[in-house]
């Protein structure tokens, strides 16, 4: 199981896919479902290493990473 999990504020996400493309581990994909904002949102498909690149590049302040050890938040 991945050490870190991805939390997405589906009200803010606009499904642009930037997070998917900047993830160095290629661990994200867009959901097949439509979120409350009317867009597809990212989901974890592989292993998240907690680098938080996706949070820096998310233009809608929608994605956060939570890692078990240390309880890091970003």
């Amino acid at each position: 199981m991945s050490a870190c999990s991805v939390e997405v504020d589906r009200n803010l996400c606009k499904g642009c896919g930037i997070c998917v493309s900047v993830c160095p581990k290629n661990a994200l994909e867009l959901s097949p479902n439509i979120g409350p904002s009317g867009y597809r949102y990212p989901m974890l498909k592989g292993e998240c290493i907690g680098c938080k690149t996706c949070t820096l590049y998310c233009p809608d302040f929608a994605i956060t990473i939570v890692c078990n050890e240390g309880g890091g938040q970003g």
Partner: peptide, 9 residues
Amino acid sequence: LPTPFCPGC
């Protein structure tokens, strides 16, 4: 929020 910017702006 959300911002009025285009998706991916």
